[in-house]
Protein backbone atom coordinates (compact mmCIF):
# COMPACT_ATOMS: atom_id res chain seq x y z
CA UNK A 1 0.00 0.00 0.00
CA UNK A 2 1.69 3.13 -1.23
CA UNK A 3 0.64 5.81 1.20
CA UNK A 4 2.51 9.04 0.65
CA UNK A 5 4.14 10.71 3.63
CA UNK A 6 4.33 14.46 3.27
CA UNK A 7 6.52 16.46 5.62
CA UNK A 8 4.85 18.78 8.13
CA UNK A 9 4.29 22.05 6.28
CA UNK A 10 3.07 24.98 8.43
CA UNK A 11 1.68 27.36 5.80
CA UNK A 12 -0.07 26.49 2.56
CA UNK A 13 -0.18 28.61 -0.58
CA UNK A 14 -3.12 28.43 -2.98
CA UNK A 15 -1.08 26.33 -5.42
CA UNK A 16 -0.17 23.80 -2.76
CA UNK A 17 -3.79 23.51 -1.66
CA UNK A 18 -4.94 22.81 -5.18
CA UNK A 19 -2.21 20.21 -5.43
CA UNK A 20 -3.56 18.52 -2.29
CA UNK A 21 -6.96 18.34 -3.99
CA UNK A 22 -5.85 17.04 -7.40
CA UNK A 23 -3.43 14.58 -5.84
CA UNK A 24 -6.35 12.54 -4.51
CA UNK A 25 -8.44 12.99 -7.61
CA UNK A 26 -5.89 11.66 -10.09
CA UNK A 27 -2.19 11.01 -9.20
CA UNK A 28 -2.97 9.11 -5.99
CA UNK A 29 -6.50 7.98 -6.87
CA UNK A 30 -7.51 5.77 -3.91
CA UNK A 31 -9.01 3.00 -6.04
CA UNK A 32 -7.07 2.91 -9.31
CA UNK A 33 -3.60 3.83 -8.01
CA UNK A 34 -3.47 2.98 -4.30
CA UNK A 35 -5.94 0.04 -4.55
CA UNK A 36 -7.55 0.83 -1.18
CA UNK A 37 -11.15 0.50 -0.06
CA UNK A 38 -11.91 -2.46 -2.30
CA UNK A 39 -14.91 -3.81 -0.39
CA UNK A 40 -17.37 -0.94 -0.98
CA UNK A 41 -15.86 -0.42 -4.45
CA UNK A 42 -16.95 -3.90 -5.48
CA UNK A 43 -20.07 -4.31 -3.40
CA UNK A 44 -22.18 -1.26 -4.13
CA UNK A 45 -21.30 -0.52 -7.75
CA UNK A 46 -24.04 -2.57 -9.41
CA UNK A 47 -25.81 0.67 -10.34
CA UNK A 48 -24.69 4.26 -10.90
CA UNK A 49 -27.10 5.58 -8.25
CA UNK A 50 -25.69 3.34 -5.51
CA UNK A 51 -22.14 4.14 -6.57
CA UNK A 52 -22.80 7.89 -6.39
CA UNK A 53 -24.52 7.60 -3.00
CA UNK A 54 -21.62 5.59 -1.58
CA UNK A 55 -19.10 8.05 -3.06
CA UNK A 56 -20.92 11.02 -1.51
CA UNK A 57 -21.22 9.34 1.90
CA UNK A 58 -17.53 8.43 1.95
CA UNK A 59 -16.54 11.96 0.83
CA UNK A 60 -18.57 13.46 3.67
CA UNK A 61 -16.90 11.21 6.25
CA UNK A 62 -13.44 11.83 4.75
CA UNK A 63 -13.78 15.63 4.77
CA UNK A 64 -15.26 15.80 8.29
CA UNK A 65 -12.85 13.32 9.88
CA UNK A 66 -9.80 14.83 8.16
CA UNK A 67 -10.80 18.31 9.37
CA UNK A 68 -11.47 17.26 12.96
CA UNK A 69 -8.37 15.07 13.20
CA UNK A 70 -6.23 17.90 11.86
CA UNK A 71 -7.75 20.24 14.50
CA UNK A 72 -6.94 17.91 17.40
CA UNK A 73 -3.65 16.59 16.02
CA UNK A 74 -1.53 18.43 18.62
CA UNK A 75 -3.68 17.32 21.58
CA UNK A 76 -3.70 13.58 20.88
CA UNK A 77 -1.01 11.42 22.48
CA UNK A 78 0.96 9.28 20.08
CA UNK A 79 0.04 5.95 21.71
CA UNK A 80 -3.72 6.44 21.52
CA UNK A 81 -3.91 8.18 18.15
CA UNK A 82 -5.28 5.24 16.10
CA UNK A 83 -8.02 4.58 18.67
CA UNK A 84 -8.90 8.29 18.67
CA UNK A 85 -9.05 8.40 14.88
CA UNK A 86 -11.31 5.34 14.73
CA UNK A 87 -13.69 6.84 17.31
CA UNK A 88 -13.87 10.13 15.37
CA UNK A 89 -14.50 8.27 12.11
CA UNK A 90 -17.15 6.02 13.72
CA UNK A 91 -18.98 9.10 15.02
CA UNK A 92 -19.22 10.64 11.54
CA UNK A 93 -20.25 7.31 10.03
CA UNK A 94 -23.12 7.10 12.54
CA UNK A 95 -24.21 10.60 11.44
CA UNK A 96 -24.10 9.56 7.75
CA UNK A 97 -26.03 6.38 8.55
CA UNK A 98 -28.91 8.37 10.05
CA UNK A 99 -28.68 11.06 7.32
CA UNK A 100 -29.11 8.56 4.48
CA UNK A 101 -31.97 6.86 6.33
CA UNK A 102 -33.67 10.27 6.60
CA UNK A 103 -33.07 11.25 2.96
CA UNK A 104 -33.84 8.08 1.01
CA UNK A 105 -35.04 4.71 2.31
CA UNK A 106 -34.44 2.87 -1.04
CA UNK A 107 -30.79 3.97 -1.12
CA UNK A 108 -30.43 3.05 2.55
CA UNK A 109 -31.75 -0.45 1.83
CA UNK A 110 -29.56 -0.87 -1.28
CA UNK A 111 -26.35 0.09 0.52
CA UNK A 112 -27.30 -1.89 3.63
CA UNK A 113 -24.46 -2.72 6.00
CA UNK A 114 -21.94 -1.04 3.72
CA UNK A 115 -22.80 2.39 5.16
CA UNK A 116 -21.72 1.25 8.62
CA UNK A 117 -18.70 -0.45 7.06
CA UNK A 118 -17.33 2.95 5.96
CA UNK A 119 -15.67 2.88 9.42
CA UNK A 120 -13.24 0.21 8.30
CA UNK A 121 -12.64 1.70 4.84
CA UNK A 122 -8.85 1.88 4.84
CA UNK A 123 -8.82 5.08 2.74
CA UNK A 124 -10.20 7.11 5.64
CA UNK A 125 -7.85 5.82 8.34
CA UNK A 126 -5.01 5.97 5.82
CA UNK A 127 -5.59 9.68 5.09
CA UNK A 128 -5.99 10.43 8.81
CA UNK A 129 -2.66 8.80 9.61
CA UNK A 130 -0.69 9.87 6.53
CA UNK A 131 -2.03 13.38 5.96
CA UNK A 132 -4.43 14.93 8.48
CA UNK A 133 -2.21 14.15 11.48
CA UNK A 134 0.64 16.15 9.93
CA UNK A 135 -0.96 19.03 7.99
CA UNK A 136 -2.96 22.20 8.58
CA UNK A 137 -6.76 22.15 8.79
CA UNK A 138 -7.39 23.74 5.39
CA UNK A 139 -5.06 21.44 3.52
CA UNK A 140 -6.41 18.36 5.30
CA UNK A 141 -9.94 19.35 4.35
CA UNK A 142 -8.96 19.72 0.68
CA UNK A 143 -7.06 16.45 0.78
CA UNK A 144 -10.16 14.72 2.16
CA UNK A 145 -12.30 16.33 -0.54
CA UNK A 146 -9.86 15.31 -3.30
CA UNK A 147 -9.62 11.72 -2.08
CA UNK A 148 -13.39 11.53 -1.64
CA UNK A 149 -14.11 12.88 -5.14
CA UNK A 150 -11.45 10.54 -6.56
CA UNK A 151 -13.15 7.62 -4.80
CA UNK A 152 -16.59 8.68 -6.04
CA UNK A 153 -15.18 9.05 -9.58
CA UNK A 154 -13.76 5.52 -9.50
CA UNK A 155 -17.01 4.10 -8.12
CA UNK A 156 -18.96 5.85 -10.90
CA UNK A 157 -16.59 4.42 -13.55
CA UNK A 158 -17.28 0.92 -12.27
CA UNK A 159 -20.98 1.51 -11.70
CA UNK A 160 -21.53 2.84 -15.23
CA UNK A 161 -19.91 -0.16 -16.91
CA UNK A 162 -21.79 -2.61 -14.73
CA UNK A 163 -25.17 -0.91 -15.09
CA UNK A 164 -24.86 -0.37 -18.87
CA UNK A 165 -23.80 -3.95 -19.57
CA UNK A 166 -25.80 -5.67 -16.84
CA UNK A 167 -29.10 -3.80 -17.03
CA UNK A 168 -28.85 -1.81 -20.28
CA UNK A 169 -29.54 1.46 -18.47
CA UNK A 170 -27.76 4.49 -17.00
CA UNK A 171 -29.09 6.01 -13.76
CA UNK A 172 -32.21 3.92 -14.32
CA UNK A 173 -32.88 5.34 -17.82
CA UNK A 174 -32.96 2.53 -20.44
CA UNK A 175 -30.36 3.10 -23.16
CA UNK A 176 -31.09 0.37 -25.68
CA UNK A 177 -34.28 -0.80 -27.33
CA UNK A 178 -36.56 -3.50 -25.94
CA UNK A 179 -34.56 -6.17 -27.80
CA UNK A 180 -31.52 -5.66 -25.56
CA UNK A 181 -30.53 -8.83 -23.76
CA UNK A 182 -28.94 -7.76 -20.42
CA UNK A 183 -25.63 -9.35 -19.48
CA UNK A 184 -26.76 -10.18 -15.97
CA UNK A 185 -23.38 -11.54 -14.91
CA UNK A 186 -22.16 -7.96 -14.58
CA UNK A 187 -24.69 -7.19 -11.86
CA UNK A 188 -23.64 -10.30 -9.95
CA UNK A 189 -20.47 -10.53 -7.80
CA UNK A 190 -18.15 -11.93 -10.55
CA UNK A 191 -18.96 -8.88 -12.69
CA UNK A 192 -17.61 -6.61 -9.97
CA UNK A 193 -14.27 -8.41 -9.84
CA UNK A 194 -13.94 -8.58 -13.63
CA UNK A 195 -14.90 -4.93 -14.22
CA UNK A 196 -12.41 -3.66 -11.63
CA UNK A 197 -9.70 -5.93 -13.08
CA UNK A 198 -10.35 -4.48 -16.54
CA UNK A 199 -10.20 -0.87 -15.27
CA UNK A 200 -6.90 -1.61 -13.49
CA UNK A 201 -5.54 -3.18 -16.69
CA UNK A 202 -6.52 -0.12 -18.73
CA UNK A 203 -4.90 2.18 -16.16
CA UNK A 204 -1.62 0.26 -16.01
CA UNK A 205 -1.49 -0.06 -19.81
CA UNK A 206 -2.03 3.72 -20.11
CA UNK A 207 0.65 4.42 -17.50
CA UNK A 208 3.15 2.09 -19.22
CA UNK A 209 2.43 3.82 -22.53
CA UNK A 210 3.01 7.35 -21.21
CA UNK A 211 6.21 6.16 -19.51
CA UNK A 212 7.51 4.76 -22.81
CA UNK A 213 6.52 8.00 -24.53
CA UNK A 214 8.63 10.15 -22.18
CA UNK A 215 11.55 7.72 -22.57
CA UNK A 216 11.40 7.97 -26.35
CA UNK A 217 11.13 11.78 -26.18
CA UNK A 218 14.22 11.91 -23.93
CA UNK A 219 16.13 9.68 -26.36
CA UNK A 220 15.28 11.96 -29.26
CA UNK A 221 16.30 15.03 -27.25
CA UNK A 222 19.64 13.42 -26.24
Amino acid sequence: MALIHEPDAPAASAGESMEAFFNGLWNQNPVFVQVLGMCPTLAVTNSVRNALAMGLATTFVLVCSNTLISMVRKLVQKQVRIATYILIIATFVTIVDYLIKAISIPVYKALGAFIALIVVNCIILGRAEAYASKNSVGKSMLDGLGMGVGFAFALTCLGSVREILGAGSFLGIPLFGPNFQPWVLFLLPPGGFLTLATWLLIFSAWKARSKRKTEVLEEIAA
Binding site: V35, L188, P190, L194, S204, A205, A208
Partner: peptide, 22 residues
Protein backbone atom coordinates in the same frame (compact mmCIF):
# COMPACT_ATOMS: atom_id res chain seq x y z
CA UNK B 1 2.04 -9.99 -19.36
CA UNK B 2 3.73 -7.33 -17.25
CA UNK B 3 0.75 -5.04 -16.97
CA UNK B 4 -1.51 -7.83 -15.66
CA UNK B 5 0.78 -8.72 -12.77
CA UNK B 6 -0.34 -7.89 -9.25
CA UNK B 7 -3.81 -6.74 -8.30
CA UNK B 8 -5.39 -7.00 -11.75
CA UNK B 9 -4.50 -10.69 -12.00
CA UNK B 10 -5.80 -11.41 -8.49
CA UNK B 11 -9.08 -9.69 -9.29
CA UNK B 12 -9.51 -11.67 -12.51
CA UNK B 13 -8.87 -14.93 -10.62
CA UNK B 14 -11.33 -13.81 -7.94
CA UNK B 15 -13.93 -13.17 -10.64
CA UNK B 16 -13.52 -16.69 -12.01
CA UNK B 17 -13.60 -18.20 -8.50
CA UNK B 18 -16.69 -16.17 -7.72
CA UNK B 19 -18.40 -17.59 -10.84
CA UNK B 20 -17.51 -21.08 -9.63
CA UNK B 21 -18.98 -20.34 -6.20
CA UNK B 22 -22.22 -19.19 -7.86
Amino acid sequence: PDMARGTALVLMLAGILSMAFM
